[in-house]
Design a protein around this nucleic acid. Sequence first.
RNA 1: CUACAAACCCGAGCUAUCGCUCCAACGCAAGUUGGGGAGGAAAGUCCGGACAGCAAAGGGCAACCCACCGGUUAAUAGCCGGCAUCCUCUUAAACAGGAUAGAGAUAGUGCCACAGAAAAUAACUACCUCCAGCAAUUGGAGGAAAAGGUGAAAAUGUGUGGUAAAAGCACACAGCCUUACAGCGUAAUCUGUAUCGCGGGUAAACCUUGGGUGCUGUAAUGCCAUGUAUAGGAACGUUUGAAGGCGGCUCGUUUGAGUUCCAGGGUAGGCAGCAAGAUCCUGUAAGUAAUUACAGGGCCAGAUAAAUGAUAGUUUAGAAACAGAAUCCGGCUUAUGAGGUUUGUAGUUUU
Length: 132
Amino acid sequence: MESKTFSYNASEKLKSRKLLNRIFAEGKSINAYPLKVLYLISETTTKQNLAGVGVSSRHFKKAVERNRIKRLLRESYRLNKNILGDAVFENQQLIVFFLFTGKDLSDATLISEKLPLLMQKIVQSIQNKNAN
RNA sequence: CUACAAACCCGAGCUAUCGCUCCAACGCAAGUUGGGGAGGAAAGUCCGGACAGCAAAGGGCAACCCACCGGUUAAUAGCCGGCAUCCUCUUAAACAGGAUAGAGAUAGUGCCACAGAAAAUAACUACCUCCAGCAAUUGGAGGAAAAGGUGAAAAUGUGUGGUAAAAGCACACAGCCUUACAGCGUAAUCUGUAUCGCGGGUAAACCUUGGGUGCUGUAAUGCCAUGUAUAGGAACGUUUGAAGGCGGCUCGUUUGAGUUCCAGGGUAGGCAGCAAGAUCCUGUAAGUAAUUACAGGGCCAGAUAAAUGAUAGUUUAGAAACAGAAUCCGGCUUAUGAGGUUUGUAGUUUU
């Protein structure tokens, strides 16, 4: 378990087209410029959180820039994913999708400080809901 | 040697920690260990192929593309070599270097800014002849492209004859051009002789001539799995042919029992294609070269929301440019930091 703390491999990535459509349709969103996060709690048997990242190709026409941002997002998630930890119940799965809403590549430097902040907000809002 | 320009080469190294993806081995498994992991343009998608499907890929028209010759190649609009024309340099010429949108303007149609009389079946001024008129620097009719000026371009140039004045009107020489013959060359072309002829440019305007192209594009395509429905309604039809295929149209040809619409439902996952190839490196040989042949060696990304990264330190040169594979190759075009190499700007010969 110890070695998996900072991992982010294929089983943790949000891949299913179905789930992606669902999270855009039903997911709740929290903003924190230059980021926006969509999250969703799903009933499941496997307790494994899923995460995905995305950049608008409208604002970033060059593939190099999009790759750069997605890498930074993934890296940030990988280093901070323990914040989410056990926010949800045993038979539930937390699905998150990070969107970069900034319009300039220079905004990407903010990712490393804003992304953990967003994750804490998610945990908070889930706990509030459970308390109610 | 310095500066500028162009072409080509190169496209950052090392250490530590945390990660991603593919392959192999081991393991019941979790996983562990080892190895591979973006580019010269991966880009633009502008050409050319491979491959696949459309029935077996046919004729005509349309559309599009190409346009001196030869070679090269799987193929090309690429590349290599040659020819022609133009430009640079020069008083001039040859060499050298550069460019080419290099079939046809004598098939036809159109267009040619400004200036100019006129931009194409040329008459403004000046010239000549005739008529009118007392005469005039007058008026009218005609001849005439020799002179003037305008323009990027003005009816091939010079001379002589000729004439009222003139004119390729005639002749001589020259230039261009058509055709024929001869010679060098595979050919374009070049040279020579004879000959028809001489009314500009533009085909990157339509067009004509010659040649070529079937269309689509790996989200192609084939297979497996899952799921449903053999539910329901309407129209047309089964040799008296519904509906299609041959992806522009048409001719022709061909399949032959289902097809279309309404309403409703399901799936959207895997495998192949798909990574050993017109392959890369080295050497030898052939060729002016592009390129080819042979020999030896190497295996060098393969994802599917999409891997190749992050942090810290350090070195060069300062926070290292342009930039990210998606079926695969060959080219073209464009972007590109620092450094390096070569070439040119400023060349040679004759007079």
